[in-house]
Write a protein that binds this DNA or RNA. Structure first.
Lengths: 333, 333
DNA sequence: GGTACTTTTTACATCGTTGGAACAACGTTG
DNA sequence: CAACGTTGTTCCAACGATGTAAAAAGTACC
């Protein structure tokens, strides 16, 4: 049923290796033979057995991408871009979901044998430094915020600066009671964005207050709504909110609307991630827009470099660009 | 560096095969030897070489999932569920994106050699019957609407009935000028949902009018907004709209809002897919909610059955449940 | 102690492919 | 025409695992 090199060789009347040579574009094959082999190839519909080839070459042709959940828009979008970038380099991408739990992340990281994939892009959420495998197992690139300090290649935007930019924008609109939603000590991202938030407050001459920082276990829409409700229920409610991602912001928008308040007149809202949906919310969401394409391509670039040779140079830390996308939720319509 | 069976065997002082037997849980191994092997296994940190094992066994341990684009929420959510369901059965999932173009879909389908993956779940958008590979290549399961008539296992909800349900809901609210957005002759889904739309109109005693059916090349938010604008600009604008997916509906919501009209008072809107974001739009979207988990699990079930044995029984056609999720965009707040 | 049987281990071939060495064929050259 | 470099092809081993079959070890019984 399945056609092997041997079948093609028999049909073409040459050795298996000659067929292999044709398939792999080896230069020195007599035109006559090349023609015969190519005909046999076409006639049989030969497809190389990737497994066997990789066994021989010591490569698998696969990359793993580890993310919390594909159903989260940011990761869906990112995964799509990573797959596209990987394809250009001839890799197929295997996706592993961890639900953002530390145990699943550890398990996944550990299960990525060198035989399964050539390398991996990981977007950790809760991993700690100790969880990382001894370096040199397989090439690893970390995506997203550099929560822990491990000597591993890493690509992300400058989270502190991005958060600071978002909050400074709110301050520049004259808002003085700027809240934040998304504090979560277990997530590295959270502390970076919180740091940016505090920096911006400081630069604007505003004072920091714990009461204005709402925690959020999961950064989901419903959590954002709940957090917003509790902020608005306080004695001195905020006149602006920086949400640590767009989902929280979308939830916040809804909570504000349900209380009959207006965005941005009563409360201005800024998100983070620039999910596609955020350009269409009502009102459209002002947000930090990371260049996700650049992120995906830089990551693939890095892992490519590690796989093809460079095993030794020190871990790199690449920052990709971002922009503040100003929309209706801060500037109105 | 990499540990093979041979290394473990040397360390344990037994033959390679005995180690293999231990690894694979073969019954007749002397307790003493088993212990020694297990120690050696632990000491070396042996991980089986998946490629080699599969070469021998003729299995790869991978499934492919072919979708148009992961950044589309429906596919992101579905892919997540498929991966989870596959994992329970010990498969890893490889994702291929086609952008919904026929050529990419054909290419992808063709490139799925039997060596690369054990089976594939495909969600075609533009494929035609002639594009399908000769049956028996690798197990294939079609997800989503059965656009073309090919003898291939297939899982989906009843699209005609679902569309009919959605539109009947609008009619039951007393709406009489019910429009539709999403007509696209190149997509099988479109004709099914259009058929359901017409059925519902008929059942409600409403007449069909081409003028109320807006085409949509891509079912994206911006297209939905544009289509809605043109519907509202007509002489006798609709008082309700059935959008062929949630993205179109989200776009429509925005167009209505930009014109200063109200949903659902002036125009009621129903979507299709129940994307997570649709529960949080303003107003929240009434929509057809397919049971995506059931869909993913049924598909994995089917492909599992085909891979492990049953190659001969006729193609199955499984219908998974759906529900009408009534929210603010039709019933108000 | 020999026979028959069961349990345990091993050697070997094999999956489909490619790298390397060996070999064959060829035209040039001295 | 022998020696030689160049080109083209074949043979063999290897990648790491497992199935098969046969060898070895152990047990039971007469």
């Amino acid at each position: 049923m399945t056609v092997t090199l041997k079948d093609v060789a028999t049909l073409a009347g040459v050795s298996v290796k000659t067929v292999s040579n044709v398939v792999n574009g080896y230069a020195f094959v007599k035109p006559e033979n090349r023609r015969r082999v190519e005909e046999a190839l076409a006639a049989t519909g030969y497809r190389p057995n990737v497994g066997a080839r990789n066994l021989r070459r010591g490569r698998t042709g696969f990359l793993a991408l580890m993310v919390p959940e594909l159903s989260i828009p940011y990761f869906g979008e990112l995964a799509g871009l990573v797959i596209t970038a990987a394809q250009k380099r001839g890799w197929s991408v295997l996706i592993e979901q961890t639900q953002g739990t530390r145990s699943r992340e550890r398990e996944t990281l550990f299960s990525l044998g060198p035989h399964l994939v050539d390398g991996a892009l990981v977007h950790p959420e809760a991993l700690e430094a100790a969880d990382f495998p001894s370096p040199g197992e397989i090439p690893l690139v970390m995506l997203g915020e550099h929560a822990v300090d491990v000597p591993i290649d890493h690509v992300a935007i400058d989270n502190v600066l991005a958060a600071q930019t978002a909050v400074s924008h709110l301050a520049s609109l004259g808002r003085t009671r700027i809240a934040a939603i998304g504090r979560n000590p277990a997530r590295g991202t959270s502390s970076l964005r919180l740091a940016g938030y505090r920096e911006a407050l400081f630069l604007a001459g505003l004072s920091y207050s714990d009461a204005l920082v709402a925690p959020a276990e999961k950064w989901h829409r419903s959590v954002g709504a709940a957090a917003m409700r509790s902020l608005l229920a306080s004695d001195s409610p905020p006149d602006a909110v920086f949400c640590f991602n767009d989902l929280l912001a979308i939830g916040a928008l809804r909570a504000v609307a349900e209380l009959g308040l207006r965005v941005p007149e009563d409360v201005a809202i800024v998100g983070f991630d620039n999910n596609e949906e955020s350009a269409f919310s009502l009102p459209a969401l002002t947000t930090i827009a990371p260049d996700k394409t650049a992120l995906a391509e830089a990551a693939i670039d890095l892992v490519h470099r590690r796989i093809t040779g460079d095993k030794t140079s020190p871990a790199q830390d690449i920052q990709t660009p971002f922009a503040l996308e100003i929309r209706e939720s801060t500037k109105g319509r």
